[in-house]
């Protein structure tokens, strides 16, 4: 599959219409869902999907099938784009507002979003809530809000290595919980 994937990206890089369509059909759902996870409205998520596929075309010749499966590459490009977008917007939470219980400024800008937000990510938030406190905080800030690990480290006054470990363990646990939910 990897070599076919590489050939697909090669065709995408040349601007071949059918290849772009094939790429879209394979990853539309995942790219849309990750966009929806990080952005407050469906309209913004759909705009982001357009931008992400343009970015995938622009970076297609850099895809290395030995380094990652295509799904990993696509999701990496998608997440990087979404994080860039989050960082560009003025709705980034300030340090004081990200303390537990404080509202995210994004929520104030999009009134009525809270209920949608909580429903949209309910499953994920339930799983995150089950994690130890540090893992939970780090995942919320780095994975869901786009803070760099260095920023999170400074906000929490915790060593960078500790933040990294907490994030890595937290993500692994989330995956394991998700797998066990699927199995049950």
């Amino acid at each position: 599959m990897s070599q076919q994937d590489w050939m697909l990206m090669h065709r995408v890089a040349t601007g071949e219409e059918t290849a772009v369509a094939e790429l879209y059909d394979r990853f539309e759902t995942l790219v849309f869902k990750v966009s929806r996870q990080l952005l407050p409205t469906k309209a913004e998520a759909e705009d982001a999907v357009q931008e992400i596929f343009i970015r995938l075309w622009k970076t297609a010749d850099r895809y290395d099938p030995r380094r990652a499966k295509l799904v990993t590459w696509v999701m990496l490009i998608a997440r990087r784009h979404l994080i860039d977008r989050l960082r560009r917007t003025a709705v980034r939470p300030t340090e004081s507002s990200i303390d537990a219980g404080a509202p995210n400024p994004a929520d104030t800008i999009h009134p009525g979003k809270n209920s949608q937000e909580s429903e949209r990510n309910a499953q994920l938030h339930r799983r995150i809530a089950e994690l130890p406190e540090l893992q939970r905080t780090v995942i919320e800030r780095a994975y869901l809000r786009g803070f760099t690990l260095r920023q999170v480290s400074e906000q929490l006054d915790a060593p960078l290595g500790t933040v990294k470990s907490a994030l890595s363990r937290g993500l692994t646990r989330l995956r394991e919980h998700a797998n066990s939910d699927w199995a049950s």
Binding site: E28, T29, L30, F32, K33, V34, R36, Q37, K42, A45, E46, V49, V71, M75, R120, N121, Q123, L124, R127, L174, R175, A178, N179, D181, W182
Partner: peptide, 11 residues
């Protein structure tokens, strides 16, 4: 690729 961590919405 684990969709269980992602919102259950479709485009």
């Amino acid at each position: 690729a684990n969709e269980s961590l992602l919102p259950n919405e479709t485009p």
